[in-house]
C-alpha cells in the first residue's frame, strides 16, 4: 500500500505499538521484587518456547519466576487492558458520549455484586472459580437489566441508554453495599481489594478465556468499524446510511458486556482504562474506528502492563491494587485531556 494512505498509517501505528508491546513485556519480566537480568529473561523464554538450550547457570528460582509468575501476569495485563480499551472505544461511539466506558453499562457494579455475593455470602459453592463465575454472571445480568430497562422506558437513544446504565449502576451498587454492610467485617476487606482490581492471581491456564473473548469482540467491532463511525453522525443519519441503529447499539453493548465480564472475572474492577485509552488512540490516529479499535487494543495492553509493573514494584514485595494506579494516572490524564480538547491533534 502506498505511503500516506489510511491503511499504511494504520500499519505503521500498529507495527510501532506492537514493537513497544513486545519490549514492554520483556522489561516487565525483568522488573520485580527479584530482578532477573534481561539476557536471562530472553534465554528462559526461548528455552520454554523450545527454541533454546537450558543454561546451567540460571540461579535457582529465576525460571519459575519469569515463566510461571511474571509472564502469565504480564500477558493477562495486556489482554485485560486491550479488552477494556476496545470496549471503551466502541461504547463511546455507539453512545456518542466521550465519557462512556465499561462502567457505564453498570458492568462494574453488576460484577461487583456477583463477587460480593460469592465472597461474603455463599462461599465457594461452585468451587475455586466461584468468584469469577459470579462476577461474570453479575456483569451480564447488569447489562441485560440495562437493555431491558431501556426498552421499558422506551429510551434506546444514545443518551437514554447512558442514563439507564447510570441508574442501574446505582441500584446494583446499593445492593452490593447493603450486602457488605450485612456481611462479616474481615471478609469485606477481601471485597474491597477485589473491587480495586489486581492481576496477582494470573496463571497460564487462566489466559484462554480472556484471549478468546478479546479476539471475538475485537473482530466483531473491527468488522463493524464503518457502522460505528456512521453512528457518531447521529442515529437518524446513520439510519439513512442503511445501518440498523438500535440493533447495532444493543449488539455492541452485549459484546462489551461479555468481554468486560470475562476481564473483570479474572482481574477485578479496573477503572479508567476503557475511558482514557480510546482518547489517546484518537490523538495518534484520528477518529476512524477502523484505526481506533486496533490501536486502542494495543495501547490499552501496553498501559495496563506498565500499570501492573508499577503496582507490583512500587512497594515491593507488596502488591498495590492496580485500580489505584490506573485511577491516579487516569484522573490526572483527564485534566490534561480537558485542557487539550480544543487544540489540534498530533497527526
Amino acid at each position: 500500500m502506498a505511503l500516506g494512505t489510511p491503511g499504511s498509517k494504520l500499519a505503521v501505528a500498529l507495527a510501532a505499538a506492537l514493537l513497544v508491546a513486545m519490549g514492554s513485556i520483556w522489561i516487565s519480566l525483568v522488573l520485580g521484587a527479584v530482578p532477573v537480568p534481561p539476557g536471562t529473561v530472553g534465554e528462559i523464554v526461548l528455552h520454554r518456547l523450545g527454541l533454546g538450550e537450558p543454561a546451567a547457570e540460571w540461579p535457582h528460582g529465576h525460571e519459575p519466576i519469569v515463566w510461571d509468575v511474571r509472564l502469565p501476569r504480564s500477558l493477562l495485563a495486556c489482554l485485560v487492558g486491550s479488552g477494556l480499551a476496545v470496549v471503551g472505544a466502541s461504547l463511546q461511539s455507539v453512545t456518542r458520549n466521550p465519557l462512556a466506558d465499561p462502567h457505564l453499562l453498570g458492568i462494574s457494579s453488576g460484577s461487583a455484586l456477583g463477587a460480593v455475593v460469592a465472597l461474603l455470602h455463599v462461599g465457594q459453592v461452585l468451587g475455586p472459580f466461584t468468584v469469577p463465575i459470579l462476577a461474570f454472571a453479575g456483569a451480564l445480568l447488569a447489562t441485560a437489566i440495562v437493555l431491558a430497562a431501556s426498552r421499558f422506558t422506551a429510551s434506546a437513544s444514545a443518551s437514554g441508554l447512558v442514563l439507564t446504565g447510570v441508574a442501574i449502576s446505582f441500584v446494583l451498587m446499593a445492593a452490593s453495599n447493603l450486602l457488605i454492610y450485612l456481611g462479616e467485617a474481615r471478609a469485606a476487606h477481601t471485597v474491597v481489594f477485589w473491587m480495586l482490581g489486581g492481576l496477582g492471581l494470573a496463571q497460564w491456564q487462566h489466559l484462554a478465556f480472556p484471549a478468546l473473548a478479546l479476539a471475538f469482540a475485537t473482530a466483531f467491532l473491527w468488522v463493524n468499524a464503518g457502522a460505528l463511525n456512521a453512528l457518531t453522525a447521529g442515529d437518524e443519519t446513520a439510519a439513512t446510511l442503511g445501518i440498523r441503529v438500535v440493533r447495532l447499539r444493543y449488539l455492541t453493548f452485549a459484546v462489551g458486556a461479555l468481554l468486560t465480564g470475562v476481564m473483570v472475572a479474572y482481574s477485578g474492577v479496573i477503572g479508567f482504562v476503557g475511558l482514557m485509552i480510546p482518547h489517546v488512540a484518537r490523538m495518534f490516529v484520528g477518529g476512524d474506528n477502523f484505526r481506533v479499535i486496533p490501536v486502542s487494543a494495543l495501547l490499552g495492553g501496553i498501559f495496563l502492563l506498565w500499570a501492573d509493573v508499577a503496582a507490583r514494584t512500587a512497594l515491593a514485595p507488596g502488591d498495590i491494587p492496580i485500580g489505584i494506579i490506573t485511577g491516579l494516572v487516569g484522573g490526572s490524564f483527564f485534566i490534561w485531556l480537558l485542557r487539550n480538547r480544543s487544540q489540534p491533534r498530533v497527526w
Partner: peptide, 22 residues
C-alpha cells in the same frame, strides 16, 4: 438532517466517506 455529529476527531474526508457505507 439537523443532527450534529459527535466530536470524535473524524476529519472532513472521513465524514464524507461515511456516505459510502451503503
Amino acid at each position: 438532517l439537523q443532527e450534529q455529529p459527535a466530536e470524535f476527531a473524524l476529519t472532513v474526508t472521513e465524514i464524507v466517506a461515511l456516505g459510502r457505507v451503503p
